[in-house]
């Protein structure tokens, strides 16, 4: 086999994308567009709904990268609970329905400059570093539930348990923060007992 044929057989060019790459690119464009709308729209509830599109698109990207367990966890936790929490937060802070003129603060041009500069530098570095790196997606599924569960409960048990402690602490913290006037309610309960 001549070197040129060998190169053509093993090298992967950007000009001849595979089907998975085309799908990844299209879903990625949709995800990025939804993310941009999320951070630029003036209607607050629409921002939360576009965030659903962006997070769902990311779940599809995980599926294309053969990490299916992560994809379903993403759908369950982000689309299912985090966005619902954000919508409840918007409701409880009485976010205006319709356009709110003060959704963006005054430092918008500076933020745009910083974001564009960071994106330019990071895209340049990343493309320069990983131009020839190729992910083999055909050699078996990387992130099926069986594989993820086995690695999680064999090698990562201690961080997993620490994470449950963290979630408990977050639960207690959220309850303590959202109680209305802790001292008053305690006194009120004691007062009620005395009355009885």
């Amino acid at each position: 086999m001549s070197p040129a044929v060998h190169l053509a057989a093993t090298g992967h060019g950007f000009l001849s994308p595979t089907g998975v790459e085309i799908a990844f690119l299209l879903v990625g464009i949709a995800t990025f567009g939804a993310a941009v709308v999320t951070v630029t729209t003036r209607q607050l509830v629409h921002a939360a709904l576009w965030l659903v599109v962006a997070l769902g698109g990311l779940a599809v990207e995980y599926l294309l990268l053969t990490a299916e367990f992560i994809a379903w966890v993403q759908v369950l936790i982000y689309v299912g609970s985090v966005v619902v929490l954000l919508l409840f937060g918007l409701m409880l802070t009485r976010a205006p329905i319709g356009r709110s003129p003060d959704a963006d603060s005054g430092n918008r041009p500076a933020a745009l400059a910083v974001a564009v500069a960071a994106a330019g530098v990071l895209v340049w570095v990343v493309v320069d570093a990983f131009r020839t790196t190729w992910i083999e997606l055909d050699k078996g599924v990387q992130g099926s539930t069986a594989v993820s569960g086995e690695s999680l409960f064999r090698h990562w048990v201690l961080p997993f348990e620490a994470l449950s402690v963290l979630l408990l602490a977050a639960l207690v913290g959220a309850i303590v923060l959202s109680r209305r006037h802790g001292h008053d309610s305690g006194r009120g309960a004691g007062h009620g007992k005395e009355k009885r």
Binding site: H12, E21, T133, I135
Partner: peptide, 12 residues
Amino acid sequence: MHLAYPAVLAVL
């Protein structure tokens, strides 16, 4: 798949 695609999407 090229690693550049997910990396660039993550950057953006």
